[in-house]
Design a protein around this nucleic acid. Structure first.
Length: 673
RNA sequence: GCCGUCGUAGCUCAGCAUGGUAGAGCGCGUGCUUGGUAAGCACGAGGUCGCGGGAUCGAAUCCCGUCGGCGGCUCCA
């Protein structure tokens, strides 16, 4: 479908359906229309003369509609196969849909029969018809379903009207829109089962959630399913076991990864990379302890907000400690050791800082959500006017890091800003209209009314200038780097706006990695200031930033992105040497020691297995190169190397050594052949 | 934390419904084999069936509890 087709503007006359307005145009792929931001069915009647765009099945809106219709189809099938079931709600999700039912639990054995019935109903090509009713009529239509009645009561105003969608003998309370008929649901698949509670509240009835997905045609569904399989194959937990990178001892340390020698190599290489990047941009490395006395956590506000997630303990003498869940208080303790001039800022402190957070049992999983993880943490202490430069520099680091390690990947930038409708949620400066005094406060966290501390007046006016100025500097930094970004009002933390960075991996998944966060709060709590050019103290602005996020999570993503076939510089085994028989062991040892001498991580297999067996066995570990040496190689001083793509090449040992060394030192993503 | 599901050898898994105290493949060890790019042959070691209780003459198997893993939900400075 040509792009201009998608963008074409049509116009509908009042009283006519959109379908009519589309005229004789080929509408097989057009399933709905969009006026402004509102979506409508093709059969809906325009209530005024409007311009609209066609929504095509393969567009984002189109897929969403298709999947929502697929959810209805599922509910149609479930209610007919299990007449006792009561459907609750079934929205489209990012790549599919789900529907929650109050019903007896089913098992995945039933998927085939559900899918078969879905195909049957789709095959009958029932029209999917919108019907509008009064609130009272709706309530009687759904009299046997308390969940729908709740929804009607919550969403339809007294005396108001809303719609149902009907297909054959099934109908559902829904605002739509939907595809014109069930025949559009050609490629629908049930994916998985989960259990949940009505409205996500465990006090409510348990529900069976059925996940599925739908695509315009079988081919794209198949592609999606293959991609899913690929994702399972790439699961870092599976790769981590195969490559012997880390273990979890579930009894002794549930949720805490332990790195093996191989895993530790990958981790150290990533750390070395980041250390270099930090050095290039003025981030000084520090080290802070893992345990602090409780006073620091009281001052930082962690005990007030975060204590349930912290490992805390009290010694016999009554002294209390907390294991750090964040590195900032430690870095602040270093920053505040001496006074700072405006001339010396920013001060940038960084650390691969291991933090410990007590994650609830249901939350822990693999390297993506461990209870101990190491953040490539950094805190910059600076003047307000330095924000834009500092953020620009960090954004450059972000781009260099991910393009350097993962290759040309999509990066997505989100700017989270405050919601000015709710100033009470944020730490703000308030100015007293009565006496002119200013104070900083976050109203939502206060038990009492906010009063002016000097005159007691309640007449306080929020001053957004700090937030506005800071947010503007974040935008400017993003613009300077020519980055496209989306703004999310209300997503900012209470203490400042932030930028999050998402990365798209090799099979299309988005991961949130970097975060860059301004903080007006910690500097207040710790009274951080610098001396300005008039010798007056001025408040510090802090930025928290992590590029990788955490080494654990990033390692998981790197593994999954490359399906375990890590770039050579990251590979625990960079060259694995296999002599054809023990007659060539000596030459193989020379090859190995030559490579080790120049810093290549070279392994050697002199066991008495066959060549084929040795290759088979080592493949799971995914060495960068498998190097075979036998009679021919020994005589000519060569090696026969096999790369990650199973391409073989013979060359002089010296040439191989030189090439692999360059590949490693250049941290190249691709192999030299 | 909640719902569902699972926990048997280093790894992947069978056995459990119909109770009679364990099996396979890979890996590991030893010997033979000296092999040219994804499994050479033989023999062997290795498990108090996550942990704790209960009913039973008898439990990997049934019941209860508990600790973990996984998929969701909720939470997330």
């Amino acid at each position: 479908m040509a792009e201009h087709e998608h963008k074409k503007i049509y116009s509908a006359l009042k009283g006519h359906t959109y379908l009519e307005a589309l005229g004789d145009r080929p509408s097989g792929n057009i399933i709905a229309v969009k006026t402004g931001n509102r979506l409508h069915d093709l059969r809906q009647v325009a209530d005024s003369d409007v311009e609209f765009q066609a929504v095509y099945l393969d567009s984002d809106d189109g897929l969403k509609i298709l999947r929502h219709s697929a959810a209805h189809l599922l509910a149609h099938v479930i209610t007919s196969l299990y007449p006792d079931s009561r459907p609750n709600a079934g929205p489209a999700t990012e790549d599919g849909f789900y529907y929650d039912f109050d019903m007896r639990p089913i098992s995945s054995d039933q998927f085939p029969s559900i899918e078969e019935k879905m195909r049957e109903i789709a095959g009958k090509n029932y029209p999917i018809i919108r019907e509008e009713y009064e609130k009272s009529e709706l309530i009687s239509l759904f009299s046997n379903n308390p969940y729908k009645i709740d929804k009607i009561k919550d969403n339809v105003p007294e005396g108001g009207r809303s719609s149902i969608y009907r297909q054959g003998d099934f109908y559902d309370f829904c605002t739509g829109p939907h595809v014109p008929s069930t025949g559009y649901l050609k490629a629908v698949k049930i994916i998985s089962l989960a259990s949940t509670h009505y409205r996500g509240d465990e006090k409510n009835a348990p529900m069976v959630r059925i996940y599925g997905t739908a695509f315009p045609d079988e081919k794209s569904l198949k592609k999606y399913m293959l991609n899913r399989e690929e994702a399972l194959k790439r699961d870092h937990r599976k790769l981590g076991t195969e490559m012997d990178l880390f273990v979890f001892n579930t009894e002794r340390a549930p949720g805490f990864p332990l790195y093996t020698p191989s895993g530790s190599i990958v981790r150290s290489e990533l750390m070395a990379f980041m250390k270099e990047k930090n050095g290039q941009r003025g981030w000084q490395e520090v080290w802070t302890p893992h345990i602090f006395r409780d006073v620091i956590w009281k001052q930082s506000g962690h005990y007030a907000k975060y204590k349930p997630n912290m490992y805390v303990f009290t010694l016999e003498d009554g002294d209390s400690y907390g294991v750090k869940p964040m590195n900032c208080p430690g870095h602040i303790s270093i920053f505040e050791r001496e006074p700072h001039s405006y001339r010396d800022l920013p001060v940038r402190l960084s650390e691969p800082g291991t933090v410990y957070r007590y994650e609830k049992s249901g939350e822990v999983g693999g390297l993506t959500r461990p209870r101990a993880f190491t953040i490539d943490d950094g805190h910059a202490f600076m003047r307000f006017d330095q924000i834009v430069d500092e953020i620009t520099s960090i954004l450059e680091m972000v781009k260099e890091t991910f393009n350097g390690i993962l290759g040309k990947v999509d990066l997505k930038f989100d700017l989270s800003v405050m919601d000015k409708e709710h100033p009470e949620n944020y730490l703000l400066v308030y100015r007293c209209r009565n006496c002119g005094n200013t104070i900083e406060a976050r109203k939502a966290s206060m038990e009492e009314h906010l009063l002016c501390p000097s005159c007691g007046s309640e007449n306080l006016e929020p001053d957004f200038s700090v937030w506005d100025g800071a947010t503007e500097q974040l935008r400017e930094a993003l613009d300077r780097e020519k980055l496209e970004y989306e703004e999310y009002p209300g997503e900012a933390a209470f203490y400042g706006p932030k930028i999050d960075v998402h990365v798209r991996d090799a099979i299309g998944r988005m991961w949130q990695l970097s975060t860059v966060q301004l903080d007006f709060f910690m500097p207040t709590n710790f009274g951080l200031s610098y001396v300005n050019s008039e010798s007056k103290p001025e408040r510090i602005v802090m930025v928290h930033r992590a590029i990788f996020g955490s080494y654990e999570r990033f390692m998981a993503i790197v593994l999954e992105h490359f399906a375990g076939k890590l770039p050579t510089w990251l590979s625990p085994i960079q060259a694995y040497i296999i002599p054809v028989s023990e007659n060539y062991d000596e030459y193989a040892r020379k090859v190995q020691s030559d490579l080790i001498k120049i810093g290549v991580r070279a392994g050697l297999d002199t066991s008495s297995e066959t060549l084929g067996k040795k290759i088979k066995t080592i493949r799971g570990k995914r060495p960068a190169y498998i190097v075979v040496v036998g009679q021919a190689e020994m005589e000519s001083g060569t090696v026969t190397a096999r790369n990650r793509k199973d391409v073989q090449k013979s060359m002089k040992l010296d040439d191989f050594a030189r090439e692999i060394r360059e590949e490693i030192s250049g941290r190249k993503i691709d192999q030299f052949f």
